[in-house]
């Protein structure tokens, strides 16, 4: 049986509760091709069921719910399977499993989470703000995982006087800091009027980038390894 859920925490937990006893179960949140003869159901989030699943999981391992929230953000193609197998193992063993790294389910979950936290770390560096005419900062990003709100605490601590918008153009949403509060909002497209100096600063930055390079030691593969091409789109220096 294939269990479709909508990608939310509540609907995952509902689907998990239904699918757990089913040996042949497969959980998915994305449209996929069904093999002939395969049965499927769409699971709607059920607060009561979700709460039951959550309560049981919390008894076994209080930290695993944070891991669930993190992994639901994954953009990996097989994230649903990783999630299901990991939580199935937790439920089956009745104890925390995160250190049983010889288990496939655990190492897959471990890697899945690492990819997400690593991308957050990467965007602490690779994100680029531009200054708008009002002084607020605007940064478009297109990350692999759904992380734009996870970036906010870092920049908020660092730049408390600057309101900013981090716009995930792929998922069409934005994390906003208005100078005192932060919130998430859907955002299709943003028209940003840039400050008078913005173009000049970008030009200076490009000049710096070109000057600090040592052309006689070219190592393009290494550069691309550390800074994959998919991140270049919103970097003025590339």
């Amino acid at each position: 049986m294939i269990y479709f859920y909508d990608g939310s925490r509540e609907s995952f937990l509902t689907a998990f509760l239904l699918a757990y006893p089913d040996e042949e179960a497969c959980l998915t949140s994305s449209g996929r091709q069904l093999a002939i003869g395969q049965q499927s159901i769409f699971v709607r989030a059920d607060p009561e069921r979700a709460k039951r699943a959550e309560k049981r999981l919390r008894e076994i391992d209080p930290d695993c719910l944070d891991e669930l929230d993190l992994m639901l953000r994954s953009g990996d193609r097989d994230k649903d399977r990783t999630l299901f197998e990991y939580f199935r193992l937790i439920a089956a063993r009745g104890e925390p499993v995160r250190k049983m790294l010889a288990e496939d389910a655990v190492s897959a979950a471990d890697e899945c989470m690492r990819r997400i936290t690593f991308e957050v770390h990467r965007f602490h560096g690779f994100l680029r703000f531009m200054e708008s005419a009002s002084g607020a900062l605007y940064a478009p990003i297109s990350p692999d995982h759904d992380i734009c709100d996870l970036l906010v605490p870092h920049f908020r601590t660092r730049l408390p006087q600057y309101p900013f918008v981090i716009h995930d153009v792929k998922r069409k949403k934005a994390a906003v800091y208005d100078g005192s509060h932060t919130f998430l909002a859907p955002l299709e497209k943003a028209e940003v009027a840039l400050s008078a100096d913005e173009a000049e600063w970008q030009k200076l930055w490009r000049r710096y980038y070109a000057s600090v390079n040592i052309p006689s030691r070219e190592r393009l593969a290494q550069m691309r390894g550390y800074m994959p091409v998919r991140y270049w789109k919103f970097m003025p220096e590339k």
Binding site: H121, H124, G125, F126, T157, R158, L159, Q161, Y209, V212, N213, I214, P215, R217, E218, R219, L220, A221, Q222, M223, Y226, M227, M235, E237
Partner: peptide
């Protein structure tokens, strides 16, 4: 403005791989 980042943070990479 600004704070430390104990783990260190790379902001870009130049064609020499640095």
């Amino acid at each position: 403005i600004g704070n430390g980042y104990p783990a260190g943070c790379c902001h870009s990479f130049t064609p020499d791989g640095r």
